[in-house]
Design a protein around this nucleic acid. Structure first.
Length: 267
DNA sequence: AATGGGACCTGCGCGC
DNA sequence: TGCGCGCAGGTCCCAT
C-alpha cells in the first residue's frame, strides 16, 4: 500500500519526470476520482499549466501549477502513478505532457482521490496531520506515547498521531523493535520506544532507497516494482517461521487491520 | 478518550 | 471451467 516511502519515491521520480513540464491535455476516464471539482473545471484550470513544484506531506502528494492551483493526490490503498508513452491499465486520470509522455494516475479500486485546491494547507487531512518521524526528536517522539491507553499498532496507523506509517511499516517497525502490536502505548518502556524510533527511521529510509514495497498494485513512476517487498520480515508472513527465532509468525486482526508478528520476539 | 463498525470500491484467490 | 463469495486496507464518519 502506498505509505510514506512509496509516496516519497513517487515524489522524487516526478521531480525528474514532471517538474517544469507543461500539461498539454487532460483525459478523465473516471470522474469518481475527482473529489471536489467537476471534470470540466479540472480540465479548464490545468490545461496548458506548467508544473512548478512537487511536494509530499505524509501520504499526500501535492503538485503545484504555475497558476497557483494545487493538484492534491491521495493514493489510498490501490493507487499508483506511471509516467510513460502510453495509457496504462486502470488509468483514471491522464495528463498529457509537452514531451509526449503521459502522467497516468492509476487506481484499480477507485478509492484514491484527486482534488484541485488553491490552499492545500487548509485541507483537513493536512491540518490534522501529525508530524513525520523524520521531523520529530527522539525525546518528543517518546513523550507522544505516554498517557496513551490504546494499543500501539492502531496508534502508529493514526495519521493524526504520526504521519506516513501504514499497515506494512507499522508491522515491520514493531517487529524490529520487539514490541507486541497489542501492547498498551503508555506501558512501553523508554528503551523500547527509543528502539522504535530508530527502527521506524531506518525502515522508512531503507524502503525509500529500495523504491518502496510492491506488495500489491504499487509501482514506481517508471513502472518498475519497488524492491523493499523482499526485505519485509513479518508483513503477510503469518504461519511462516520467524526469521529471528524460528517461532511461528502469528496473524490476527488488531484494530480492524490484519497484523503479523512474532509472539516470541515481540513482548 | 477509545473502540468498533460501515462505507467507499473492485481485482483477485479460493472453494466447490 | 466457471461461478459466487469474501478478503484486501486508508480514511472518514457515526454510534457506543
Amino acid at each position: 500500500m502506498p505509505e510514506l516511502p512509496e509516496v516519497e519515491t513517487i515524489k522524487r521520480q516526478l521531480i525528474h519526470d514532471l517538474l517544469a513540464r507543461t500539461i498539454k491535455d487532460i483525459i478523465v476516464h473516471d470522474q469518481r476520482i475527482l473529489k471536489n471539482i467537476t471534470k470540466e473545471k479540472f480540465i479548464k484550470e490545468v490545461k496548458n499549466q506548467k508544473v512548478k513544484a512537487i511536494l509530499r506531506k505524509g501520504k499526500v502528494l501535492i503538485i503545484e501549477l504555475a497558476n497557483s492551483w494545487f493538484i492534491v493526490i491521495h493514493l489510498r490503498i490501490s493507487g499508483w502513478i506511471i509516467v510513460s508513452n502510453k495509457e496504462e491499465r486502470f488509468a483514471r486520470v491522464v495528463l498529457k505532457l509537452d514531451n509526449n509522455q503521459l502522467f497516468n494516475f492509476c487506481d484499480s479500486r477507485l478509492l484514491g482521490e484527486l482534488k484541485l485546491v488553491k490552499d492545500w494547507q487548509s485541507l483537513p487531512i493536512i491540518q490534522t496531520m501529525g508530524k513525520e518521524v523524520f521531523d520529530i526528536s527522539k525525546e518528543d517522539f517518546i513523550s507522544l506515547f505516554k498517557n496513551k491507553k490504546t494499543k500501539i499498532k492502531p496508534l502508529l496507523l493514526d495519521q493524526k498521531f504520526i504521519a506516513g506509517i501504514g499497515n506494512i511499516y507499522a508491522q515491520e517497525a514493531l517487529f524490529c523493535s520487539g514490541i507486541h502490536p497489542e501492547k498498551i502505548s503508555a506501558d512501553i518502556d523508554n528503551k523500547r520506544l527509543d528502539k522504535l524510533y530508530d527502527c521506524l527511521k531506518n525502515i522508512l529510509n531503507q524502503a525509500i532507497k529500495n523504491g518502496g514495497s510492491s506488495v500489491d498494485t504499487y509501482r514506481q513512476v517508471s513502472g518498475q516494482e519497488g524492491s523493499y517487498a523482499k526485505l519485509l520480515k513479518v508483513y503477510q508472513r503469518g504461519g511462516q517461521d520467524c526469521l529471528n527465532c524460528k517461532a511461528k509468525i502469528q496473524s490476527k486482526t488488531i484494530g480492524g487491520r490484519g497484523t503479523c508478528f512474532c509472539p516470541q520476539c515481540q513482548k
